Simulated assay, not measured.
Amino acid sequence: MKSIVLEKAGSADNLKLVDIAKPSIADNEVLIESKAISVNPVDAKIKYSDEGLSGLISPERPITLGWDVAGTVVAVGSKVSKFTVGDNVFGMVNFPGHGKTYAEFVAAPEAQLATIPENATFTDAAVTTLAALTALQAMKNKVKTDDRVLIHAGSGGVGHFAIQIAKKLGAYVVATSSEKNRDFILSLGADEHIDYRSQDFENVLTDIDFVFDTQGEEVAAKSLKVMRTNGNLVSIAMMEIPEILQQQAAPLNVNVEAMLVASNGDDMAFLAGLLSEGSLKPHVSSVFNFSDMAKAHAALESGRTVGKIALTF
Rank of each mutant, 00 (worst) to 15 (best):
V219S: 07
A126Y: 08
T123G: 01
S291W: 01
G77Q: 08
D191L: 10
E277T: 15
S178H: 03
A131E: 02
S279W: 13
V226E: 10
K180Q: 11
L280A: 14
Y102E: 10
T64Y: 02
V127W: 06
A175P: 12
K45C: 13
R61P: 07
Q137T: 13
E29V: 03
A171Y: 04
I194F: 08
G278F: 14
S54V: 03
E51G: 01
S24Q: 15
D213C: 04
E218A: 10
S198H: 05
T206W: 04
D213V: 07
E277W: 11
G99C: 06
R61Q: 02
T101W: 09
H152G: 14
D267W: 06
G66S: 00
E243V: 06
A262P: 08
F184E: 06
K308Y: 09
V204Y: 00
D19A: 09
L300H: 12
K35R: 09
S58D: 10
L6H: 07
A299V: 02
V73I: 07
A299C: 11
N119W: 02
F313D: 02
N203T: 08
N94V: 02
E7R: 09
V143E: 04
T305W: 07
N28L: 00
L31T: 08
S291L: 02
R197D: 12
L31M: 04
G91E: 01
I4D: 08
K45R: 08
L275R: 02
D27P: 00
T64V: 11
G10I: 09
T214Q: 15
L53V: 14
V211P: 01
S81N: 05
A250W: 12
D50Y: 05
V39P: 00
V93T: 03
N230E: 15
L150W: 12
T84D: 15
A126L: 07
F201A: 05
D147V: 09
L224G: 04
M268K: 00
F288S: 12
L274G: 00
T312S: 10
A237D: 08
G265F: 09
K100R: 11
K16F: 09
I37E: 06
D213K: 03
E202N: 06
S49E: 13
A310S: 13
G231I: 02
A108R: 07
G216P: 07
V39C: 00
A190S: 11
K35T: 00
F212M: 10
S302E: 10
